[in-house]
Every structure is written in C-alpha cells, then in structure tokens.
Amino acid sequence: MNERDSTYNIANAKLGFQNEVERLKVQAMMGWDKEFRNLSWYGLQNGMSVLELGSGPGFVTEQLLNGLQDSKITALEVDIDLLDVAKSRLDKFPSPRLQFVHSSVYDTGLPDNTFDFAIARLLFLHLHYPEKAAEEIFRVLKPGGKLVIIDVDDQVFGVVEPNFTLLSSVIQKLANYQASKGGNRYIGRSLPRLLAKAGYIDLDMDTVTQHSDLHGIEGFKRQFDINRFIAFYKNGILNKEEFDQLNQASENINNSPEAYAMMNFVMACGKKPILNRL
C-alpha cells in the first residue's frame, strides 16, 4: 500500500501551492467554532492527548492548541511540504505541547493505546482505503478513546443562491471523477458502518452547517473559485453549459450582495471499547 493512497496532493492543486494553502485556511476556519463545540459534545476535553490526522498546514492544529491549553497535540501529515508549512507557522508552541509526525494514516508508526482523542477532518473522502485508516487509528487510541471524522456527503452538499439548474449535475460529475481516482465524496453516509466494522462502539453522528450569512462569504468565494474548475472543463469532465453556470455562480458569490450559500459537513464519532480484565 502506497503511503499516499489518497486523491489529495497539493502539488496538483489547480490554484497553485500558496493559494491552495489560503483556501485550506479559510475552509478550516469557517465553521470551526461549531466543530469545536461538537467535538466537546463528543468528549474532547482539555488535558487530553489528541491526534490530528491529515493536519495539513496546521490551521486546525493551531485552534486545538489554543482551545486545549493543557493538551498535547500530535499533528500527523503525509505531505512533507504541508508539514513544513505547519512547522514554520506553529514554531511559537513549545515541543512538549506539539509533536509533528511525517507519516501515513495507514501506518502511523505511533505506539498502541496512546491517544485519548483522534480527529480526521476532510481526510476520509480522499482515502483509497478508509477501512485501513480507521483500523490504524483504532490501534493507537487508548481503550475508551474516541475518533471523530468530519467529512462530506455531496448528496447533502448544500445550496447556492441564486440557484443554478445544473448544480446537481456538476456535483455528480465531480464526485464521479473523485471516485475514479479512488476517493469518495459520498463518504459521509458510510461513516457509521465504517466505524462499526473497524471495532468502534457507541457510534454517533451529526451535521455541521456553514452559511455565508453567518460565517462570511470569503470561504465560499474560495470554494467556488472558477479557476478550480477550469481543468475539469478542459478535460471534458464538465460540459460548456455546466461550466458556464458554475462560472455565473462564482461571479454571483463574488459580486452580488443578494447571493448566499450553505454547506453541510458530517461528523461521526466512535469509541474504542474498554476491555474488561478478570
């Protein structure tokens, strides 16, 4: 198994490296207050040993460090360039509170039964082998430890106003393209069964909704940046009518005060059982 058995590689980002990092920043921060609230509901507490998987440039890592000031955060990332960005950004935090690990979610190299809580945010949709990842995270969690996956299901993607009639067609084609590369933009609906199969118990599930009127329009501008979709049009994945409607939606979000958008994210939680010993 290749350590990068994933559909995400920042080297292939349509916006270029630095613009993609900025997009990831906005994406991470848009609904963080809600996500952190839900993580707390699921049992995340100050003082816990926390593993963040697919930590990227470290924007969520930074929020965890600020919100859990007595916790040790371990940030695991397979892309060395993103890890270097995170190390540079977060060098103000002392090493006892923050550990960086350059490794794969499939084979972390971390010891058994180490972490109280694990978080995988917008990672599983990219994985070729999500079950293997869930099993590896299970291994490194302490008995009683929890994994929370924050991810997408494009069937309940959200809405864009003014609506464009081919939105569902565009979403379907982009999901099909990701599936052809080994990912799954409908992973959200599968998370409870995936967690159960890996041995997790006490499963729970919720959604987090981000709305431009509540969280600002900037993140949605980046999500609908037409430059992200040009290659899909040039490669025949999107037809001209779909691309033109997408371009109009992008212009509306960027320029029209009447435009707004809403996106839904799925959160699923499972616990590693505590084994009774006689």
Rank of each mutant, 00 (worst) to 15 (best):
D70S: 10
L141F: 09
L68K: 07
F115N: 11
L82G: 06
D154W: 15
V160T: 15
S88M: 05
L68H: 09
D91N: 09
R97V: 01
T74C: 10
L98Q: 06
S168P: 02
I80N: 12
L141I: 02
H128T: 13
G158K: 01
H128Y: 11
D154Q: 13
P96E: 00
S103T: 01
A118S: 10
A175K: 08
A75D: 09
P94R: 12
E161S: 07
V105L: 14
I119W: 02
L123Y: 08
L110G: 05
T165C: 06
D91K: 05
G144T: 14
F164D: 15
R139E: 00
S88H: 06
L76P: 02
S71L: 03
E135Q: 09
D112V: 12
I119E: 02
D151S: 02
A175Q: 07
L125I: 13
Q155Y: 10
P96D: 02
E131L: 13
K173L: 11
D151G: 07
A134Y: 03
D79K: 04
V105Y: 02
L76E: 03
K142Q: 04
L90V: 08
P96W: 02
A134M: 09
L122G: 04
Q99R: 15
P94G: 10
G158W: 04
R139G: 06
I150E: 08
V148P: 03
F93I: 10
V156A: 10
L83W: 09
I149V: 15
R139A: 06
V156S: 10
S169P: 05
V105P: 06
K72A: 10
I149L: 09
D84L: 13
K173N: 06
I119V: 09
F100C: 00
D107H: 05
P130Y: 09
G145P: 12
I171S: 07
L125Q: 14
L122Q: 14
V105H: 03
D107C: 07
Q172G: 08
N113H: 04
I73F: 03
S104N: 12
L82D: 05
A133F: 01
P143M: 12
A120D: 03
L83D: 07
D84F: 08
L82I: 10
K72C: 13
Y106W: 11
H102P: 05
N176H: 09
F164V: 04
L90W: 01
L127D: 12
D81G: 13
I137L: 12
D154G: 07
Q69K: 15
D153H: 15
Y129G: 02
R89N: 13
T165F: 01
D81E: 14
N113G: 01
H126Y: 05
A120H: 00
L167A: 12
P130K: 07
I137M: 11
K142R: 14
H102A: 11
D112K: 14
L141E: 03
F93C: 04
Q99I: 00
L98P: 07
S88T: 14
I137R: 11
I150W: 11
D84C: 08
L127V: 06
F157Q: 11
F93G: 01
Y129I: 08
V85Y: 02
L98K: 12
F117K: 13
H126E: 12
D91G: 03
L167G: 10
D79M: 06
E161W: 00
D81Q: 13
R97S: 10
F117W: 08
V101Y: 13
L90E: 00
L127P: 04
N113A: 05
L68G: 05
L123I: 12
H126V: 03
L167Y: 10
